[in-house]
Design a protein around this nucleic acid. Structure first.
Lengths: 209, 209
DNA sequence: AAAAAATTGGACCGGCAAGTCCAGAAAAAT
DNA sequence: ATTTTTCTGGACTTGCCGGTCCAATTTTTT
């Protein structure tokens, strides 16, 4: 389940000993947990130092690019989590029951984490850190693709009308989820998120006449 | 059109001379323009000082609460703009043509401002500044209400099915727009925004059988 | 016109946080 | 074993930015 994380990490750890890799990973995960539980805009390297029980020099040793590089790494880590948390449902949207389980998983996930959305944390840095835009749009793209695949599967089974534009509708789902979460972050309520997921799924169901 | 802004301002300007009011307003508008064109997380009081041609003491004279108070005031200013920019369409969603004009106005607005969404700037401070959450949820609420009213109007005319939950569907619209804009901010494309607006309107049209 | 109040300019302070440096400990290589 | 590389600790530097202060100027009041 964390295989992709391992892969990702191994790209950057060439030349590090086992101990070094462990420390590096501990920093990323500790920083991720810390950023997730607060406003990432205010998070400081010293906070991360405290929470990960490391020193300044370790931070800069493993992330020569400093704060920016570390945050990007955390962003990648979190992006992987977003998709993983929706599995196995997202990967097999092949029946209305599956869609329903997925819908519930999404709502449960965001309800649980409340105001703190790691993806939003990501987005809030899109402006300042160049690489962040790439990380988040990659995530959005693969997320959209998964949903699109689900819609095509349903079309193949005749449970969604052929006239539906799978790609476009998948985009709508992703936008809807993003928006629902955005509203959640500022109002604390999942109403908007639930509303749009229900409507979009109803739209798909109604399409098969 | 800027009557509400005047009202709002007049609440805080008791005891200020005409010149003072003008300076205060110049600061708010200049700061708004500046924040709109960059990452608000990095905006500094000195930047605002430069762009508004004022001095530190003026900033603190008119906004004793410092940065926080000034930013909140800017947030209110921007929140008003968001609604205004969709008028007069948003206020009179009484035919499919009107809905279409509204849809186009929304897309045009966000396409024009590209990656920089003032509402998102607002949101990104929800965590740090207490009042920001209130400002943005007030905006979302009144925005949702406008759409809800539009749906009810269409229902009264028999152009949207009675089985549609107006409130819930309006929530979906708002969430959809938010999400579309969120995606726009990170990918630069309005595809998601256009997709979800089209689908939601189609959903409404199809409801009138 | 004089006094009082509001407005403006900008120097200055203090704290905080990113990033540097180097010395010492631990681990790996030979 | 010793030598070389990797890893770790934390003090220190540097610059930035929010906020304070006070003196000068303009405007309003009487």
């Amino acid at each position: 389940m964390d295989a992709p994380v391992q892969d990702r990490a191994s790209l950057d750890v060439v030349g590090l000993t086992a101990k070094g890799i462990a420390t590096r990973q501990r920093i990323i995960e500790g920083a991720a947990a810390h950023l997730r539980s607060g406003d990432p805009g205010v998070a400081t390297l010293d906070d991360i130092r405290d929470v990960t029980r490391t020193s300044k020099s370790q931070l800069f040793h493993y992330f020569p690019g400093g704060k920016e590089e570390l945050f990007l790494e955390v962003a990648r880590f979190e992006a992987a989590r977003v998709i993983e948390d929706q599995q196995p449902h997202l990967g097999a949207l092949d029946s209305w029951a599956a869609w329903d389980r997925w819908r519930k998983a999404v709502i449960a996930r965001y309800r649980a984490q409340g105001q703190h959305c790691p993806l939003a944390s990501l987005m809030s840095q899109v402006g300042s850190v160049p690489g962040a835009a790439e990380v988040s749009s990659t995530l959005l793209e693969s997320w959209t693709r998964d949903v699109e695949r689900g819609i095509r599967t349903m079309q193949a089974k005749g449970q969604v009308g052929e006239q539906i534009d799978a790609r476009r509708t998948a985009s709508a789902f992703i936008a809807g989820i993003q928006g629902g979460v955005t509203v959640l972050r500022s109002t604390g309520s999942t109403d908007h998120l639930e509303a749009i997921l229900a409507i979009l799924i109803a739209y798909l169901r109604d399409s098969a006449d």
